[in-house]
Amino acid sequence: MAQTYELKATSRERVGKGSARALRRDKKIPAVIYGGNKDPLPIALDEKETTLTLHGGGFMTKLATIDVDGKKEVVLARDYQLDPVRDSLVHVDFLRVSAKTRLAVDVPVHFINDEQSPGIKRGGVLNVVRHTVELECPATEIPESITVDLAGVDLNGSVHISHVNLPANVTPTITDRDFTIATVAAPAGLKEELKTEGEEEEGEAE
């Protein structure tokens, strides 16, 4: 299960661009909590605390507890906006969640045992097709990452989603094919070497 974090917030009565600009001048970030069969709740977050949490990793996959004027909401960040010029955080959307909530989440892919890949040992290059995989899972059981084992993967070999051990109750959102996560490709020089070796073997066989 993914780790959690907590943020403090205050509710806000005024919404709109003017109110949002005023909040940002006060080093606050406008946000909203929605879902859970309740009305949307506009809130204001501390700019420094929220920005540090965003850059700490896992912002979109970790459950969060937001303390709104003493009342706590369990949520998951579903979207955020950055200023196109300054790249600063300007708005966050949070979804209320419970143990019964299932949702689709992009989970990062981690690779292990590259030193045990025959293809990489021979000079092959790891070609990552998917840096994240969208998974459907309970909101309280979001994996922090999925692990791809490269041991035994040779040149021109590939790793598919079926090779990954996913936790119980967790499934990929793509179900109509065994999609590729990564391949081990031979660089140009090695391709020529392999081609020459293949031709020589064919000549010997003749």
Rank of each mutant, 00 (worst) to 15 (best):
M1L: 10
A2V: 07
Q3Y: 05
T4A: 03
Y5V: 09
S11P: 00
R12D: 06
E13R: 10
R14T: 15
G16H: 14
G16C: 15
K17C: 12
K17I: 11
A20C: 11
A20W: 05
R25S: 12
K28Q: 13
K28W: 00
V32Y: 02
I33T: 14
I33L: 13
G35H: 02
G36M: 06
K38R: 15
K38M: 13
P42A: 15
I43Y: 06
L45W: 12
D46K: 12
D46I: 12
D46S: 14
E47H: 07
T51F: 14
G56L: 05
G56K: 07
G56E: 05
G57A: 04
G58K: 10
G58Y: 10
T61C: 09
L63W: 05
A64H: 09
A64F: 06
T65E: 14
I66S: 12
D69L: 02
G70P: 00
K71W: 10
K72D: 13
K72C: 09
L82D: 07
D83M: 10
V85T: 11
V85W: 09
D87C: 02
D87S: 10
V90W: 09
H91K: 05
V97G: 01
S98Q: 12
A99H: 14
A99F: 12
R102P: 04
L103Q: 08
L103G: 06
D106L: 07
D106W: 08
V109N: 10
F111H: 03
N113T: 03
D114P: 07
E115G: 05
Q116F: 11
Q116R: 11
S117W: 01
P118Y: 07
G119K: 03
G119R: 01
K121G: 08
K121R: 14
L126C: 12
N127W: 07
V128Q: 06
V128A: 06
T132G: 02
T132P: 03
E134S: 14
L135S: 02
L135Q: 02
L135A: 02
E136M: 10
E136W: 00
C137E: 00
C137Q: 01
A139L: 00
T140H: 09
E141Y: 05
I142W: 04
P143H: 05
P143G: 03
E144S: 11
E144A: 10
S145Q: 13
V148L: 00
L150R: 00
A151I: 11
D154Y: 00
D154H: 03
N156T: 12
N165K: 15
P167D: 04
P167G: 02
V170W: 03
T171R: 11
P172G: 10
T173M: 10
D176R: 08
D176L: 04
D178H: 06
I181T: 03
A182R: 00
A182P: 00
V184P: 03
A185H: 11
P187F: 04
P187M: 04
P187N: 04
A188V: 14
K191Y: 01
E192W: 01
E193P: 00
L194N: 06
K195V: 05
T196N: 09
E197Y: 02
E197L: 12
G198I: 08
E199W: 11
E200W: 01
E202I: 04
